[in-house]
């Protein structure tokens, strides 16, 4: 008997009613995620990735189909699920340490406990020494690491990350990818990562999901059978390159559909 999945997404669809009519953002997506598995979702902009994540995270509650956490239907936000958002989300009025301690404060931990825990997490994301800095005094990559540490602080079993490194430059992104690999090796969390970046997806994932451009469906699932741990140095290897090429092949088609659409929309005004 195969073990039951930690998270089951079953025939989930989501439509938005807009002024210009009905938009299907996510169309009949099904996916089983096992405990400890790292899955990346990759697809062109506007294909419904964030919408899917918001449904799994419980921020969007009206949709068709079922999302099951350990076999139980998810309703609203769950303490087992932690989210890292695409947009900047650190609190500018809190120091790095206070930001990471935020969820612990909400959970009612004593001051000493939450500070000790927040220190550990800042250390984990490589930010020890910056405890008393405010977000405005740090770089974008550091702020995003604070956001990740803040989400890890309450030890969610399942981690959802929506393009957490999208706004960063390539070098920072590579280094952060290595950081995520280290954290993943340590915590073995079930993770759903949304990304634009093919090599990031190959480096981090057990499986990569490619989504179609509008309506967002699963086009293909690719198992990444590369030895772990995988640092950014292995990106030069031949096997790595093959996966990247394979994913790009599928993604290219969808991305160009997206481009045509955008051009058509621009021509219409």
């Amino acid at each position: 008997m195969s073990p039951s999945p930690a998270l089951r997404i079953s025939r989930v669809s989501k439509h938005f009613e807009t002024g210009k009519g009905r938009v299907t953002a996510v169309d009949d997506v099904s996916l089983d995620i096992m405990q400890g598995e790292f899955i990346s979702i990759i697809g062109p902009s506007g294909c419904g990735k964030s919408t899917l994540m918001n449904m799994v995270g419980g921020l969007l509650t009206e949709y068709d189909g079922d999302i099951l956490l350990d076999g139980k239907k998810v309703s609203g936000c769950q303490p087992e699920i932690g989210m890292v958002f695409q947009e900047e989300s650190t609190f500018p009025w809190r120091t790095a340490l206070e930001n990471v301690a935020f969820p612990l404060e909400a959970a009612g931990l004593t001051r000493d406990k939450r500070i000790a825990r927040a220190r550990d997490l800042l250390d984990l994301v490589g930010l020890s020494g910056f405890e008393n800095h405010y977000p405005a005094e740090l770089s974008g990559g550091m702020r995003q690491r604070i956001a990740i540490a803040r989400t890890l602080a309450f030890e969610p079993r399942i981690l959802l990350m929506d393009e957490p490194f999208a706004a960063l430059d390539e070098q920072t992104r590579l280094l952060l990818g290595d950081k995520v690999v280290q954290i993943q090796n340590k915590l073995r969390q079930t993770t759903l990562l949304i990304t634009h970046n093919i090599s990031e997806a190959v480096q981090l994932s057990d499986r990569v999901l490619i989504m179609t451009f509008r309506p967002g469906r699963i086009k293909r699932v690719i198992e990444i059978d590369l030895p772990r741990p995988r640092s950014s140095e292995m990106m030069g290897s031949e096997a790595f390159g093959r996966y990247v090429a394979e994913i790009w092949q599928d993604l290219r088609e969808e991305a160009s559909k997206g481009l045509h659409d955008a051009e058509a929309a621009a021509r219409q005004g």
Binding site: G57, G58, L59, G76, C77, Q78, P79, G82, M83, F85, E87, E88, S89, F91, F102, P103, A106, R150, F154
Partner: peptide, 15 residues
């Protein structure tokens, strides 16, 4: 985004 973080952490109204 601040409010979404609060929502994802299930904060109460007072919090």
């Amino acid at each position: 985004m601040y409010l979404r973080v609060g929502q994802s952490l299930n904060l109460t109204l007072t919090q």
